[in-house]
Design a binder for these strands. Sequence first.
RNA 1: GCCGAAGUGGCGGAACUGGCAGACGCGCGGGAUUCAAAAUCCCGUCCUGGCAACAGGGUGAGGGUUCGAUUCCCUCCUUCGGCACCA
Length: 888
Amino acid sequence: MAGNEISGYNFSAIEKKWQSYWQENQTFAAPDGLDKPKFYVLDMFPYPSSEGLHVGHPEGYTASDIVSRYKRMKGFNVLHPMGYDAFGLPAEQYAVQTGTHPQVTTAKNINNIERQIKMFGFSYDWSRRLATTDIDYYCWTQWIFLKMFNSWYDPIADAARPISELIQKLENHEYMVSPTGEIIYDTTHPISVLAGEPVGTFKYQELTVQQQRQIIDDHRLAYIAEVPVNWCPKLGTVLANEEVNSEGYSERGNYPVFRRALKQWMLRITRYAERLLEDLEELDWPESIKIMQRNWIGKSTGAEVCFAIEGKDDEVIEVYTTRPDTLFGATYMVLSPEHPLVAELTTDLQRQAVLEYVRQAARKSELERTADTKEKTGVFIGTYAINPVNQERIPIWVADYVLMGYGTGAIMAVPAHDTRDLEFAEKFDLPIIQVVQPPEDVDWHGYVDEGIAVNSGPYDGLTTAEFKKKITDWLEEQNLGRGAVNYKLRDWLFSRQRYWGEPFPIVHCEKCGTVSLPEEDLPLELTETDDFTPDISDDPDSVPSPPLGKLTEWINTTCPSCGGSAQRELNTMPQWAGSCWYYLRYLDAKNNQAPFDKDKERYWMPVDLYIGGAEHAVLHLLYARFWHKVLYDLGWVSTKEPFVKLVNQGMILGEDNQKMSKSRGNVVNPDTVVEQYGADSFRLYEMFMGPLQTVKPWRMQDVEGVYRFLNKAWRMIIDAGGSVHANITDAQPEGEALRRLHKTIKKVTEDIETLAFNTAISQMMIFVNEYLRLEKRSKKAMETFVLLLSPFAPHIAEELWQRLGHPVSLAYETWPSYNPKLTIDPEVELAVQINGKTRAKITVPADSEEKTIEETALESENVRSHLAGKTVRKVIVVKNRLVNIVAN
RNA sequence: GCCGAAGUGGCGGAACUGGCAGACGCGCGGGAUUCAAAAUCCCGUCCUGGCAACAGGGUGAGGGUUCGAUUCCCUCCUUCGGCACCA
């Protein structure tokens, strides 16, 4: 099987030859700002793991490479770059275990993976290569972080703005400050406090320096907050929700994760929830990915409602509900265990039980808290609330099925029409009152859909939608509530207690608080150490101690603001940071004055085609969109969205139809395949397996098929002696052969446009099978075929192109065009059906008149015998397709 | 539980906008070439019956719309992916 024959298709020699040709001639370097239309084709860059590439990587890379090569031949200036997402836990875990510096491991892994990527002959512009761990890359990651730290979200402009503008507006008294520390943007109206007295406001200057700083820090897009986080003592770090699986274990390493309140860096992505949701509309992305993002953002509309507390005039409980129309059915309330009013509202009699419950809830791991989904728990706190719509006295409970992080952390429970409340009410014997009438034959117990209001006083008979509107208006009039929107999306937990990540360009100063480094001081280099080990423990109560904390010399520095002594921030950024903007750095990878040049950004952006795995459906793609929007608001990028079109390649399974994994022993190593069959066969096979977007199993046997095809293509042009085949003549192709050529150009062109590479390859196979049988082959047809093949199997195509007499690479040859007339056969075979069953075939000239077709069909012998004794009722003729005779 | 995608020969898959189901490839069977093999070439290959012409069945299951359904509609089953107490 190996191509060792001297005169035959010797893929290893050919592939080596052309890869060095491309490199020496810089064939795929993309000049900036050419006077050509641009096309930006982006791959999701890989994490350089020690295992190297698996066969899933080159699937997407081959698809994007085909498009890149095709677009170049179509006259586009194509940007097609590659790089490495190189920060991250695995290299660091390895460092902790072996003492090898992550830098060393990472460099080694990048070398290996780059060797692999290069062996496929992808047409990357390697001069733009980057790794997120490069100092001149993360310098600008830090720079973008500073932009976020020094920005706030202006609700009036509905955009991020420099924080200096906020300070200025506060100083000028355009904005005031409420006693609770909130900013009052509209100073012409006194603030209204729900069910309370309007209260006084402060001028910024009336606040202490500490208070001023607090206000400002609370509005930065990057801020520090004490939040319940996922603490993983075994990794010695906190993890984002997304890095914890549903069983409550870390995705990396599968260690238990505990909930703890810790001070962490956060990014205010929630302010962008609405824009991230809205702007999805205009994107050419798979609908399933858009839906996943929508669900992740989780917008809901409803109302916030105030419930008075019996015996307490100075407090109310605010709840959020999407069903204000069920207010009359609220029979109890629930506060989440973390709710600030729990302590205050608990009666002495219940205090011990409640405190115990709250303490337990706080200690519960994510696992325990979600595992017992069936058994609801909770404790009555001893106090009652008053239902504002009917003055009913309803008990207040504390229960961990209500989450502090969503809505107001408190709910009104409507057991009749909410599954969770129903479960809880049944367990604790709380009253269940129907307030929605479902359609006939549907039980109202636990009916959660819309219906007609009942037991709702004056509102009886209203539909859910009408009721919602009326009651929300009423609540607003009474100052008891208002319409409200909520999102499931949470702010992004942005710090890790690890060594191998971007250091925060931040110092903590006793006098000045949290202070950012000036931009000129960037990069803040990750300092050298040989002690990467965070304090790892089995104790969920252990205190995080980042490895950077051991580097006393590095930690102690001077405050850029006051010059006094200060300490550096000890956390580092999460792996996602680097991948949030790499597509922008490619535009200008060597710039050391700015992250990228604005003119280059305007020329190249947006990304026209982004190909990668669906596993990044929400996280990477949402985070990157968020950063992009921040940069857009601050005037650094010119488009609202980074990625116009997104395609997810489907996973490649092992031969056993299972996910490839080391433990199953079904992993296919691309190196072996390339060695056996060559890169061109590898590329071709990955594209021929099936549609790019679907999941499909690897079958080593099938690689043989495309390999044979390339051999046939070779033999079609090159004879046994190694010269161009004597059958190839300068004559123009004619007849059937000419039509086959034009059909092939059409099919391959259209299929590349729609990323249907598998059927494009089928068509080329048909072409080769047919032309191999011809006595004489037109050179023009051979050249055209080689050009069509070249995006798929570029090495063999270049070699054949050269042997056909062209000294220069075909990479910038004009893509073949076809004559539509030559894609149609002069005669067509039609099926003749009787009552929908095919009974005969007839051959007629293309585009024959319906009448002629009908006549020819009825003359056919088999048709006549089937029609014997029947009456023809109707004849349907579909031109160039079939005839259907209806008879009985 | 909710959301999404998909079910077609022995296998991967193809089928425009409702118009001949199974293109192309793998595998398998038969033959040619060869001392022999590899490679290559030719013929066959959805299932059942038949030497054949041909007939019947057939795109997860059941129903519907239609002259005609892999394609559109309803119900159900299975597999995969995502989310999971979000009020």
